[in-house]
Nucleic acid binder design. Sequence first.
RNA 1: GCCGCCGUGGCGAAAUUGGUAUACGCGUAGGACUUAGAAUCCUAUGAGGCAACUUGUGAGGGUUCGAUUCCCUCCGGCGGCACCA
Length: 803
Amino acid sequence: MGYDFKNIEEKWQKYWEDNKVYKTDCYDFSKPKFYVLDMFPYPSAAGLHVGHVEGYTATDALARLKRMQGFNVLHPIGYDAFGLPAEQFAIKNNASPSIYTEKNINNFRCQLKRMGFSYDWDREIKTCDPSYYKWTQYIFLKLYEKGLAYEDERLVNYCPALGTVLANEEVIDGRSERGNYPVERRPMKQWCLKITAYADKLLSGLDEVSWPTSTVQMQKNWIGKSYGSIVTFNIVDSDLSFDVFTTRADTLFGCTYCVLAPEHPLVKQLVTPEQKEKVSKYLAEVERKSDLERTDLNKEKTGVFLGAYAINPINGKKVKVYIGDYVLATYGTGAVMAVPSHDQRDYEFAKKHNIEMIKVIESDISKEAYEGDGVHINSDFADGLNNEEAKKAITDKLIELKKGNYKISYKLRDWLFSRQRYWGEPIPMIHMEDGSLKPVAYSDLPLTLPDLKDYQPTYDGKPPLSKDKEWCEVIVDGKKGLRETNTMPQWAGSSWYYARYIDPHNDKEIGDKKLLDHWLPVDVYVGGAEHAVLHLLYARFWHKFLHDEGVFSSDEPFKKLYHQGLILGSDGQKMSKSLGNTVSPDQVVNEYGADALRLYELFKGPIDQPLPWNNDGPKGAKRFLDKLYRLYFDEEYINKRTTESEESLEYVYNYTVKKCTADYEILHFNTGIAQIMVLVNEMLKAEKLPLYMLEGLAKIIAPITPFIASEFYQALGHNDLIDFSTWPTYDEEKISFKPVTYAIQVNGKLRAKYDFKKDATSEELEELKKIVLTLDNVKTYVEGKEIIKMIVVPNKIISIVVK
RNA sequence: GCCGCCGUGGCGAAAUUGGUAUACGCGUAGGACUUAGAAUCCUAUGAGGCAACUUGUGAGGGUUCGAUUCCCUCCGGCGGCACCA
């Protein structure tokens, strides 16, 4: 039996949609603003996942709460429609990506509406829509103008299976983040965005946002700022020199050799004729190795002597120069000074190659290198200093010698921004016949993606767009040119979409400045933790750039961030078709209704935790909603309606309102709902049901289960919508009137309980101490013993210590 | 290896931030109503014990009148980074 959720939900969904109930007037500045945002979905053919539903329900509940509290709420949705997932799917199903994407979007929209999410549907955006990507291209041109977009021939992560290069952030353990295909290094000419120019701003901005500490930490690690020094080593009998970066300048006196990365530009010039054969052989070996093999930490550190010697600038000592693939070409200067006594990797390498070790910090290095702090020795003027002092003394000396300086280094590398794929934003650049580059004129944007029949990626990495001669060949100012045929990566469109929602139909600018200033930053942003360093770093970069360009006045895009945890299958494994443990929202909605699904997902636990799906969960949620329904619609309970109320029920009611108000705000829905259940159980038992309580209960449940709550509110005789009613208030007096129960402990063990008035005066507490000692169960443990002390914590506990 | 998070009943989880551990829900068992019950309602439900009581928040130690909460050591799980010099 139970309530007829099907009709109720259909009725309200239709009403909300027909009347555009959740349309936001962004120009209404009379109320305080609240911008609550979801990470928009990739419109995959699989449709909405129960994991989406969890995050989207949380933001929807928050949006509804804020609306009821009198905020002007912006709560939009859209689709991250470009990029690999959509294209891969279209290829597999032999369809056109645009038609396929559109179909999937329609399915998503339907599912989202069914869930009762209060989005402003007039603000829906799709990243693949020319009216949208016009501005993605616009931002690219701005970046280019400022020298932050550039073409560079470099070693890139190329994935043959996907037929495209990938950003560092998209490569995990030498495999592609999407599809898990092997990735190799290839030199290719590619577009890059100079995210490194914003490294410091991206780092310091993290102190200003309320984000999960783990995400902040991940971004900090990814940016990887380290303070060190640059040291210049001259080559013996030559004008050549190379720089090394080190964070341990204090150990410079212990440097007994140097190692260059195999890709270091000086390798060819430094190798001596005697060593040539060995070195070429080594280089060939390195080239054969995959990225995965090269980064295998357990492998022995290999390398060969170049034949050349360098001079340690601090003591003039001659040291051998090696190449070794444990030195990364892409970090620091691509060359390191080796101090085997105080660096474990150097230690192992030196043992194998029989290289001298000089101890410069008092320590035992018989078994392994000593990497800690200590008193410096064998270091001339730095003797007796500790690490930090020695770093300073030695670097200062290097500055004096003009052989070094302080240097800050980052792990962050520039963002590889081009893809050899079809389904993305065309990069608005033209390669002129004379070899120069010309940006597409702003007035020619959007540069639309042509409708290609054959859009499959090619194995050799030639972009599919190059197959469309007509599109490629252009004439600018009477000169011939070819369009850039690479497209932008998945992450381009999602790097600024939150801003477009504010003024989505503006074809003159990204958005009306007045509106952008008012609505940014996003107050609460919810989405998966898998975007911790991808989307969330890129979006911050673009935001900071657009801030510098004067487009945004805020300097961070997302003030508060939450991640919804992964929802696992009921077997505790990740949901997957092959395991047969997937749950589709449609299936649950059909059986129990959208309200029940929403309720279950918010009640089952904290939203940021990964949790297994419980097949009985939605059933339990539905059971609760049936109970609630009876409270409002059963004759039995309708007959108990009154304007009077009982004190004990008032206590529970007011406490519940207070708890929900506080808990919803920080997305702790599970505890708020638990308290509502306590209230409902009490109301079902009560003799009198005050009308104001029924009304308040409908309101506090409305953010969680808006369909049934609307039905209740209407049944109570309201013509207005619950969403725009005011949020109930609570009476602190009614919460604190209750006597409190004191726990009586003797030697730390609970022996009795005693009800006493709340907030008693100190005289009354003295009285209480006497009463407590007369309690039977206390007497048993106290009599015949000496009372050492009695600790009274008002309203909580009396702790008696006896001997 | 390094960084971050976490460990509470059969299960998902609460605990007013140092003060009555296990709220709320799921599951299970027993009962009621019923021709019937996968509906609904009542009762029980950490472990041991007839009971008073004892014991109990991954393990061990510490601080405290009092520790799930704070400190130290260890074990286990999850996420991230991974030769970053």
